[in-house]
Amino acid sequence: MTAPKKRIVVAMSGGVDSSVTAALLKEQGHEVIGMTMQIWDYSKFTAANGETFGTCCSLDDVYDARRVAQALEIPFYVVNFEKQFQQAVIDDFCDAYFSGRTPNPCVLCNQVLKFDLLLRRARELEADFLATGHYAIIEADGQGGQVLRKGCDESKDQSYFLFTLTQEQMARVRFPLGAMSKDEVREHAARFNLPVAEKAESQDICFVPDGDYVRFLEEERGAGQRDGEIVHVSGQVLGRHRGTYRYTVGQRRGLGIAWHEPLFVVGIDAGKRQVIVGEKPFLERDALIVQQCNWHIPVPGEPLRAACRIRYRHREVPALITALPDGRAEVRFDEAQRGVTPGQAAVFYADDRVLGGGWIS
């Protein structure tokens, strides 16, 4: 017995992954509708030679998404979320850096734009599901709920960025590429003869396409803010800096100070306008606190053994996780970790299953 056909909105970014997602779903007989988010004006980021930067969601990407939709002969819509993106993602990005945190805008974009606003638009079109090109897997747990798992291609797994998904959202979301490798996706793109089959991967933060986040912050909020002292963990003042937002925990280069051992940024005190530096051992932390936790399991009443990933490219490490009041949790590592960075997400796993996560405070 064949599965019933569904109406599915595909979030089309103009890249290979979302294009293949749309093509596969149409091939399966579903009624597919393409939808692209316009979230930022990239005209000012066009280089002097006319080239554009390799990022997602640019105007070129909107054009590519439209071309793919035409090739697949599916309806296509562009939804303007520039105002919402500014408020939910860009303002948070700036606020975080100016308060001494290092934000993760990709998680917020998924949480607020794709799986809230765009999912709502899909429902307005009476769609059964919203599908995206994420490398992750959603499965039924056999008890009326959903389970989020890592994508099978470990090098492309994006489950870390999806920890904020709720049960209600997961019931309405599909990730057709979760069981595939990137090479397999490329092969499908060639098989469907998609106009973006050879398109390169997007890089960097979408609204900072040249990678110069300091320039972006100063254009948004002004230069000359948060200047102050560079202070050794011993309390000794070693120099001056031109803004705490120019530094992140773990940074070594660009400190501009001489010392008998390599120094790293080990903390940022935005209130005192201090960048705190120390030798490598001072980067190590044996515990952290997360806030705004989103659990994919019942909130554990007892300490929970799990693996924890503290940034996207970090391999999970064993930890003991204790739920605390007010949506917080303590994560205590079996072995001290370097680079624990306020503002990043800490995501909890049991093997390949996401158990939950929160924001490092």
Rank of each mutant, 00 (worst) to 15 (best):
R311F: 11
G29V: 06
A171F: 00
R174Q: 14
R273Q: 15
D326E: 15
I138L: 12
V331W: 09
E27I: 03
I90H: 03
L113Y: 01
Q146M: 14
I321W: 04
Y349D: 05
Q344C: 07
G271H: 14
F161M: 15
A287M: 09
I321Y: 04
I321F: 03
L255I: 10
C152M: 13
P209M: 08
L217R: 05
D286H: 11
E261D: 11
T244F: 05
D204L: 11
K114L: 11
T248E: 12
G254A: 11
D351H: 12
A140L: 09
T46V: 15
D352M: 09
G235E: 11
L119M: 00
T21W: 07
W295E: 02
T55Q: 07
Q203K: 08
V265R: 05
G301S: 05
L355V: 08
D334V: 13
P105H: 04
I33R: 10
Y77V: 04
Y97M: 06
Y160E: 02
D141H: 01
G356R: 04
V266I: 15
L72W: 13
V317W: 05
D334Y: 11
Q167H: 00
P75A: 13
E219L: 04
P303H: 06
V79K: 12
S99V: 09
L255V: 09
Q344A: 11
A122F: 08
I90K: 10
T55E: 06
V340M: 12
Q143H: 14
S155V: 12
T132P: 10
L217Y: 05
T2K: 14
R305I: 00
F76V: 10
R240I: 06
P209T: 06
Q158H: 01
G15C: 09
G254M: 12
T46Y: 02
R305M: 06
A96D: 13
E139Q: 13
A11I: 03
V147L: 08
C94Q: 02
P281D: 13
R66D: 15
K6T: 09
T36R: 02
A48C: 02
A69R: 02
R186M: 04
V299A: 02
R285L: 01
Q344Y: 14
S181R: 15
A47H: 08
S361G: 08
V78R: 01
G15P: 03
P75G: 12
S181V: 00
A345E: 13
D326N: 14
M170T: 01
A319F: 04
